[in-house]
Computed example of a mutant assay.
Amino acid sequence: MNPAPFRTPVALSDAGLWALQFAALPDDVAELAKGLQGLLIHEHLADVYGITLSERQRGEPHVRGAGEILERIAVHDSRPLTYPRPPGERFAGCCRHYVLMLVAMLRSKGIAARARCGFGAYFAKDRFVDHWVTEYFDAAQGRWVLVDAQIDDRQRALFGIDFDTLDVPREKFLVAGDAWRLCRDGRADPQAFGVLDMAGLWFIASNVIRDVAALNNREMLPWDVWGGMTLADSEIDLAFIDRLARLTREPDRHQDELRTVYADPRVAVPSTVFNAVLRRAEAVSPFALSA
Rank of each mutant, 00 (worst) to 15 (best):
A291E: 14
I111N: 11
D237L: 00
R156N: 07
R170D: 13
P9V: 00
K125N: 11
P251H: 09
N217Q: 15
D178F: 06
N275P: 05
L25D: 04
V267F: 13
G227L: 04
G59S: 12
I73Q: 06
G200R: 04
F6M: 06
I209K: 03
S108T: 05
R154D: 10
T272I: 13
V212D: 09
R90F: 06
H254R: 07
A124W: 01
R96Q: 14
C183G: 01
C94Q: 12
A291S: 09
H254N: 15
F203P: 11
Q155T: 08
A19D: 11
L70F: 11
V261H: 10
G228I: 06
V267W: 03
K34E: 14
D167M: 13
G93D: 02
G67Q: 03
E89F: 01
V99I: 10
L146A: 11
A4T: 14
A124M: 09
L25T: 03
D189E: 08
I69E: 03
Q57R: 00
I161H: 07
R210F: 04
R154N: 03
V129C: 12
E257H: 03
P26F: 03
A104S: 15
D185L: 12
A214P: 00
V168W: 08
A121H: 12
F119M: 07
R79N: 10
L45I: 02
R143V: 07
L45V: 11
M101P: 04
M198K: 14
G50H: 07
W18G: 04
E219K: 02
R85Y: 04
I241V: 11
A192T: 04
D224W: 09
A139E: 15
Q57A: 05
R64M: 12
A104Q: 06
A15M: 08
P270F: 05
E68L: 09
A213P: 07
F6W: 15
M220I: 10
S108D: 14
H97I: 06
N2V: 07
L174C: 07
G160N: 01
T248Q: 05
R114Y: 05
V261L: 13
D28A: 05
I209E: 12
D197V: 03
L247T: 08
V103T: 14
F22W: 06
L215D: 14
H42M: 05
A263D: 15
E282L: 03
L106D: 14
A276Q: 13
L12W: 05
V145L: 04
F274W: 10
V145D: 06
F6V: 02
A74E: 13
F287D: 15
A33P: 02
W18Y: 13
V168G: 03
L20A: 13
P84K: 08
L182N: 07
R266Y: 02
D27A: 11
D77T: 08
E71A: 13
P169V: 07
Y83C: 13
